[in-house]
Design a protein around this nucleic acid. Structure first.
Lengths: 98, 98
DNA sequence: ATAATATGCAACTTTATGGTTGCATTATGC
DNA sequence: GCATAATGCAACCATAAAGTTGCATATTAT
């Protein structure tokens, strides 16, 4: 999932999808071909970050906020774990002298 | 930065760095060479997710929680932006005048 | 029905990434 | 001082990722 987020083009797409743009519209703003954009969208889809919503001949995608929250949760865990370690380290340094 | 997070090995490292392990120790738990681990750590460092703390002949890394918070912030922005869009969409569907 | 629009599919190229091996360098312990 | 331990550095390989071109398919509008 972070891998899916780890491409500037896909970040850009994610932040613009919400407006309900079609693939072609999304591609218009970028210096790459429509096909390349489609591939990026498929990557986001595989990571469950977006969901396809086809209507007639055009396709739009919707973001899945739950997934974003999940990512945030993981970052929180690590940050917190690290804070805990920091606390322990600090206590260790201040307490015992090595 | 998300690209740096987008590798399972690096996620693993990030979650274990806090314990104050050296490169060799970190590598011991993984099925890849120490050199490969070093490269991953450099990637995390370039993304400002960790910071080098060399002491004598061994090197440890510390996590930079501020960076994690920054990532979370971005996720929040997108999620919120999307929630907003959802709200507008919903209002539109329900026939609200706005 | 036809033309135009929106997208899908597939082959191919280029470049980035992850991993390895081999050897050099720096610090520690005795 | 010397052996050992912890890293760093560089060349090299394999695979995956990003992008392109060309063509097929499916909707919509006239």
């Amino acid at each position: 999932m972070f891998a899916a987020l780890g491409d500037p083009v896909r970040l850009n797409l994610l932040s613009r999808i919400g407006d309900g743009r079609s693939i072609t519209e999304l591609a218009a703003g970028l210096p790459i071909t429509r096909q390349a954009v489609t591939r990026h969208l498929r990557v986001l889809e595989r990571a469950k970050l977006v969901e396809e919503r086809r209507r007639g001949r055009e396709t739009r995608f919707v973001v899945r906020p739950a997934r974003l929250r999940q990512a945030k949760g993981w970052l929180d865990d690590v940050a917190q774990q690290w804070d805990g370690t920091l606390g322990r380290l600090k206590a260790h340094i201040e307490g015992a002298r090595r």
